[in-house]
Amino acid sequence: MPRKDLQPLQIYRLLPRTNCKLCGCPTCYAFAFNLISRSRRVEDCPELLKDEFGESFRALKKMLGEGERIAGSDHVLDRSRCTGCGDCVAVCIRALTTITKNGRLAQRAAVPPPLKVMDGRLQVVEWSSCKRAVPGLDICNLCAEKCPFSALDLVKPEEPDQEDS
């Protein structure tokens, strides 16, 4: 099960810290940020695949889980855990219609649901409807919170490289 309170420094301590740039990131610290946002995978670091880093590799895999980021969204889905139960879809439809405005609940205009179960697995079909995609709305993570199998995780939007470096 992936941990939800990951810090870049925790990840960085497990990396080779050679800044070899072979993964495509300018530094190992930048690679740690990319791992948290799931825009890079642990396997992208060639140093980590060596035997001497075997323990770090396994620890990182355990911390980050098997989830893969769904392109163009904040959602990280572990397809082997997702059963397509639709709990995330049901809570999202509810969460979509209400927003907090000046500290009070208000109705939001109807938008198409961002999530849908297709071929037995969750898909993000309308990312622009998700509250996380609209600037100014409260950060919502209900779908990941309500997943009974912890198959879904939400990460921050991808950080630009210059900030990482």
Binding site: C82, G84, G86, K116, V117, G120
Partner: peptide, 12 residues
Amino acid sequence: ILIENACAKGAA
């Protein structure tokens, strides 16, 4: 070619 709304069990 595409099964919508069915869970993994139903789609299979």
